[in-house]
Structure formats: structure tokens, C-alpha cells
Simulated assay, not measured.
Amino acid sequence: MATRTSRTPRRTEALSRERIVEAAVALLDAEGESGLTFRTLTERLATGPGAIYWHVANKGELLAAATDSVIADVLAIEHDEPSDTPQDEIRTLALGLFDAIADHPWLSAQLAVQLSGSPWGSVTPRIFESFGQRVAALGVPEATWFTAASALMHYVFGAAGQNAANARALEPGVDRAEFLHAAATVWEELDPGEYPFMKSIADQVREHDDREQFLTGVDLILTGITASNRA
């Protein structure tokens, strides 16, 4: 009787850098940065490590490429849906980044690496340009462009990163609405003499929407930028 030999699944598409990056993003979403190895990547793509190294030199380059790919998708959507005012375009851009960071738990840390440690890479200039063009369109003095755009970016990535971290911190199976309700209930029972503010906002915490709260913060910054220009 003939024996059946085990064979490695054959690729049905030619291997390309784009396919490698796409597979890397999927692995990062599912397993996090620690789960992205060249071994797991070769298994997913049914190829050998040499074929991947031909396109990507190391894991650092792969992480940078995955980050760039996700950000490129966000900016492409933002360009496909132009709005009437710079303020609306900034909101669209900010919310797109907020959602991307929520959908890709690894993205916040990688953006911090790119924005702080690799300002000459492709990600930092593209994000700065997208915010900066719209800040300039608000009519603020050129001398304040860098500060205003930086303030927006710091808020967007800080708030989006914290929101994503909050979601990851929930225990498996814990409902977010129930969690917020429990926290708000505890805050309502705090000593009013020591925690008057916390007691007053407890009900707002219970009912708030993360995306709406995020956009309200964007609007506060935009109001400050335009108000300082008028002054």
C-alpha cells in the first residue's frame, strides 16, 4: 500500500511584500507583537524564511511596514471623503486614527516608536502633513503651525491609545457598559466633601460614548487654536 507523504501547502499567489505585510498585520491583530515571528509568518504564507527575508530584512522593518500599511489605509479613506471645512476634515482624520488604534491593539505602541524614534520614516511625515495642511487651512499664523499640529496629534494618539488600553484591560467576558455602571455607582457613593467633582460626573461616565467623547476633545482643541488666532 502506498504511503501518503505530508506536503507543505503550496502558495496559490506569488509572494510579494504586500502579501507579507498583510499577513503580518493579521498576525499582530490576533497574537500581538510577541506572536509575530518569521516562523509563524512562513507557516501562514506557506513559504520558506528566505523568501520573506528577500522582501523584509528583519522584524523591526516588518513592524514599521505593518504600521505604515494601516496608517496608509486610514489616510486613503480620509482623502476619499473630503469635507467642507478644515475642522470637519480634522475630525474625519482623527476619528479614523482613533478607530484604527482600537481595531489594532498593537498599533498605539508602534506609532509611538515611529513618531518619536523614527521621525524620518514614512509614517511621521505623512501624519504630520495630513494634520498640518488642515491646521494651516484654519488660517492660524505659520509660526504656530508646528505647535498646533503637535497638540492635535498628541491628543489624538494619547486619547486613542488610552481608550484601546482600557478596552484591553477588561477581563474576558466583562461587558463594558456593566463595568462603567459599576464604576459610576462607586463614585456616586464617595464622600462629597472630598470628591465633589467625581460624584458630579458619575452619571456622565455611566452613559458616555467613547467616540463622541473623543471628538468633543478634538473640538475643544480646535476651538482653542482658532480662538488664539483671533486673539
Rank of each mutant, 00 (worst) to 15 (best):
T8M: 04
Q204E: 09
D210E: 14
R17N: 13
D103V: 07
A177L: 07
A51M: 09
R44V: 10
E89A: 07
G96A: 11
V156D: 02
R168I: 13
A94K: 05
L222E: 01
A14G: 11
A23W: 02
F179N: 10
T8G: 02
A72H: 03
Q204L: 04
N229R: 07
S150W: 08
E89S: 12
R39P: 04
G50K: 09
A182M: 15
P196I: 08
S122D: 13
R10S: 06
R211C: 00
Q110A: 11
A165Y: 10
L93W: 08
S83Q: 15
A169M: 08
H104G: 07
L41N: 03
P82E: 03
G217H: 02
A182V: 11
T12Y: 05
S83Y: 12
N163C: 05
G117S: 09
H104K: 05
G158E: 06
L107Y: 11
A159N: 02
E171N: 13
S108V: 07
H181V: 09
R91A: 08
F128G: 12
S130Y: 13
W106P: 00
D73S: 06
H55F: 05
F214V: 01
E81T: 15
G121N: 04
T85D: 03
S83D: 13
W145C: 02
D209Q: 03
L190R: 11
G32L: 01
E81A: 10
